[in-house]
Amino acid sequence: AAATQAPPPPVDATLPATRIIDVAQVDGCRDVQYSTLSRFWELETGSDCGAFRFRGYRPMSVSVVGATSVNRLPTSGSPDNNAASEVDYRKTEMRVQLSVRTKLAQGLLTRGHPTLRDSLWAGYTQQSYWQLFSPGISRPFRNTDHEPEIMYVYPTDAKLPFGWRWRYSGIGLVHQSNGQSLPLSRSWNRVYLMTGMELDNRWTVTGRLWKRLHESADSDDNPGISNYVGRAELGLTWNVDKDNTLALTARHSLGATGRGSARLEWLQTLGTSLVGNRTNLRLHTQLFTGYGDSLIDYNRKRTVFSVGLSLVDF
């Protein structure tokens, strides 16, 4: 006799429809049962959101900026890249940052592993300084940096002392330029190694070490940029609670000059009654001091304070 299939269990009509929809819409890279780094880089099967979908990368933000100085006459170690005349920029301006990424492929080297997933990503970040408060010079964009990159991330799950976990390592290639012609053109290319570890969902430590790709003297817009912006970066993030995050990012030249920068950020989650009690919108307060806040300022030290709004994920 033919086997018969048992009928499906009845649906409990007492369950509210919204609850059924919520269960069906669980998204791996937003599933809070996984750690911060696992969700960000989709290191595990359960934290995977699939390829060719846009993710947030760095914060997407709009901020009001006040600085100790503004670069009215940009200079470079290259004689052809020195501005000929000053522009009457103001120290107070707007900063707009857009940043997205997408996963191109996964399971390249971890195919067959029951839980871990490596991945290949492409990202793009754009940061613009807008002289909104300078009507006398028609409110121009003082500088816009474009930063496309490609990165490969390999997952790990090694236990470290004091409860820390080593979560990933990777390699990347990044181009950064401001898209301007001479004498304001600035650009460079780097290859980097990166890694990250975390303690529960409270603390994360990330690091990058990079090497600038060689350019001939006649095509180098910014000689010695690594001695100003740096050759390494260390990031420390503390999730104080579900609504507040503090982050410190430090860069260093790893050379005799000892130059670099430090960036301290506070992000506070904002809620609104229009869309619910909690959103992905953050109040973003930032203090930066050092070199390389933008490419046009790669060799100019300044301190910048900004307050604005950031969309940290979408």
Rank of each mutant, 00 (worst) to 15 (best):
L270F: 07
T285P: 00
T279W: 02
L287R: 06
L283A: 14
L270H: 05
G290D: 07
T285A: 13
L283W: 11
G290Y: 09
H284S: 09
R282H: 09
L287C: 08
F288D: 06
Y291I: 01
W266P: 05
I296P: 00
E265S: 14
N277R: 12
N277H: 10
T272M: 11
Y291M: 05
E265K: 11
G292C: 06
T279L: 04
L283Q: 09
H284P: 02
L281G: 04
F288T: 07
V275W: 06
R263G: 05
L281T: 07
I296D: 02
S273F: 13
I296N: 01
L264Q: 01
R263F: 09
L264R: 00
S273L: 14
T289D: 15
G292V: 05
V275A: 08
W266C: 09
R282N: 09
G271V: 04
L281P: 04
T285H: 07
S273Q: 13
R278S: 11
T285N: 13
L281A: 10
G276K: 00
G271D: 03
L287Y: 14
T272F: 14
R278L: 06
L281R: 02
L274N: 04
I296K: 03
G292M: 03
R278N: 05
D293A: 12
L274I: 13
L295P: 01
R263D: 15
G276M: 03
G276Y: 06
L295F: 05
S294A: 14
T272P: 05
T272I: 07
V275K: 03
Q286N: 13
L270N: 04
G271I: 03
S294F: 07
G271T: 03
Q286P: 02
F288G: 01
W266G: 09
G292R: 02
N277Y: 08
L295W: 05
Y291R: 01
L283P: 02
V275F: 10
L274G: 00
G292D: 04
F288Q: 04
G271A: 08
L295G: 03
Q286L: 14
F288S: 06
T285K: 01
L274S: 08
N280P: 07
G290M: 10
R282L: 00
G271Y: 03
V275G: 05
R278V: 11
N277M: 09
T272W: 13
L287W: 15
G292H: 00
R263H: 13
T289I: 09
L287K: 00
V275R: 04
D293P: 01
L274P: 01
L267P: 02
D293H: 12
E265T: 13
Q286T: 11
T272D: 06
L274W: 15
T279P: 03
G276N: 02
D293S: 11
V275I: 13
R263Q: 14
T279Y: 02
D293T: 08
L295R: 02
L267T: 11
N280T: 05
S294N: 15
R282S: 06
D293C: 07
T289R: 11
S294H: 07
N280G: 07
Q268H: 15
R282A: 04
L295D: 06
